[in-house]
Amino acid sequence: MTVLRIAVVYPDLLGTYGDGGNGLVLFRRAERRGIAVELIQATSDAALPAVDLYTLGGGEDGPQVLATERLGEAGTLAEAVANGAVVLAVCAGYQIVGARFPAADGAPVDGLGLLDAITEKSQGRRPVGEIVVESELEGVGMLTGFENHGGLTTLGPSASPLGRVCIGIGNGDGTDGACSGRVVGTYLHGPVLARNPALADLLLSWATGRALAPLDDHRELDLHRERLEASLGRRGRRRG
């Protein structure tokens, strides 16, 4: 790869919670290491480009279905994943890359099937609030984020959870998110990579195929620690 290419997928439809921040965090972290990198805002009125790393954000019910239809028709994303592209999909984006999710009226909509995950409407209260997940991905550790979603997700045998929920709801069964190959989905919405630089670097190392030099992350780590402590109390410092 000569230039690392990162695309924020359909920011005009999927970007309700500042999710575009994930693309920016990845871009800057590559740039600071001297990696040649390009960040593309891939709006839904143009063909989705083939790139090395995609981020998908959250969206309201209508735009979520519209985005799914366009991504399915084009087929670019599935093809790129088959060729080794990395995907981070949060919130509605996580549901889109799964196998199925409910539309606003509850009718099931076929997702892209990049993750073996089925989402159904939550029968209880909408999960809204801080969420802490102990990740099963190597070197990632504790993840901190905010969730706000109306669906709960059940994983099939070919996906594994992103991690175990310590605080919050996530998938609804004590786990959050899903991983399959280089596709990662999670309910930690918005700029999850800003709070969790270790996850950002894991995705970048997958996309570039190399180990990455450390950065001065004192601001990011202050934020990470502060959020864990806010959710877990003093335990956060030891476990984070």
């Binding site: 970007g15 919670y17 500042g18 575009g20 921040g21 920016l24 706000n148 918005g190 700029p191 800003a194």
Partner: peptide
């Protein structure tokens, strides 16, 4: 609002 994710917008 308890979620400042919007700062990234």
């Amino acid at each position: 609002g308890r979620d400042p994710s919007w700062l990234w917008d």
